[in-house]
């Protein structure tokens, strides 16, 4: 049974593309057949995060405009055999694809793949409407910050209007120390406002940045807390019941260990 999941947020910069790349790699690590579709036409990034930029031959627009079959445009991941990327065009804009074309493409892909993850552009305009059109369910990514939560709320409303009822929440870039001091929104505040099911709490982690720059999503890094959080989300998507991880108190020894590079 294949599932089409759109990853969206409203606000930019909260980690939609990072989340898409990590969930894609995480699902592929479990042996699932996964396609990632980048719909952020004109501002494509997903290929960079996966380190696949130099392998792109065709893009989403070539497929929707009928120049090539989608299979020809897919880029296989160099490390995970069952992970594919359908990149988008960097020269065209969001008007180049319409919702009907994406719905049709997703229906074709359903036959072959277990999971189709769609990376949605920021905003609530045409690009967003196209990205969500073919999805069975949505993952809304937000950050513990009032503007990100406000935009997530708006996006959930828009998804509801488009009759997408299956919506899950991922809270990204949590800084436990700041939450503890009361300087950052905590999970109770966020759940209280958004009132949708939360499937992930990802701590802010420097390794996310370093791994992004290397083109290797952090989910495959055993030593990273954010990687563990992403692996937990992948498990929950696969229907496992995994409790939310505790963020360990950063004591003197862990700090010391970090300084000495363990």
């Amino acid at each position: 049974m294949s599932e089409v999941i759109v990853i969206t947020s409203g606000k930019g910069g909260v980690g939609k593309t990072t989340t898409t790349a990590n969930l894609g790699v995480g699902l592929a690590m479990r042996g699932k057949k996964v396609v990632l579709i980048d719909t952020d036409t004109g501002l494509r990034n997903l290929d960079l995060l996966l380190g696949l930029e130099n392998r792109i031959m065709y893009d989403l627009i070539d497929v929707t405009e009928g120049r090539v079959l989608y299979k020809k445009a897919l880029v296989r991941h160099k490390k995970y055999e069952s992970l594919f990327l359908l990149p988008t065009s960097q020269v065209r804009d969001k008007m180049a694809v319409n919702p009907e074309q994406l719905v049709k493409l997703c229906e074709e892909m359903r036959e072959e793949y277990d999971y189709i993850l769609i990376d949605c552009p920021a905003g609530i305009e045409q690009g967003f409407k196209t990205a969500i059109a073919g999805a069975d369910c949505a993952i809304v990514v937000t950050m513990p910050e009032i503007s990100a939560v406000r935009d997530a709320d708006k996006i959930i409303g828009e998804l509801g209007r488009a009759e997408k009822e299956n919506i899950k929440l991922v809270v990204n870039r949590i800084r436990p120390q700041m939450v503890k001091k009361g300087d950052m929104l905590d999970m109770d505040d966020i759940n209280d406002i958004l009132s949708i099911k939360c499937i992930g709490q990802v701590p802010d982690d420097e390794m996310v940045v370093t791994s992004t720059n290397r083109g290797e999503p952090v989910v495959s890094n055993e030593g990273s807390q954010a990687g563990q959080a992403y692996r937990n989300i992948v498990g929950r998507i696969c229907g496992e019941d995994i409790p939310f991880m505790e963020f360990p108190e950063e004591g003197f020894f862990t700090k010391l260990k970090r300084v000495f590079g363990h």
Binding site: R150, D153, K154, I156, G157, G160, D192, I193, S195
Partner: peptide, 25 residues
């Protein structure tokens, strides 16, 4: 019978009963 989210508007000539939250915006 739902949460009214940011950017949404409910208008009525009569009274309104909301079974859910009314979010900021």
């Amino acid at each position: 019978d739902r949460t009214v989210r940011g950017g949404q508007e409910i208008t009525s000539k009569g009274s309104v009963l909301i079974c859910g939250n009314v979010n900021p915006g």
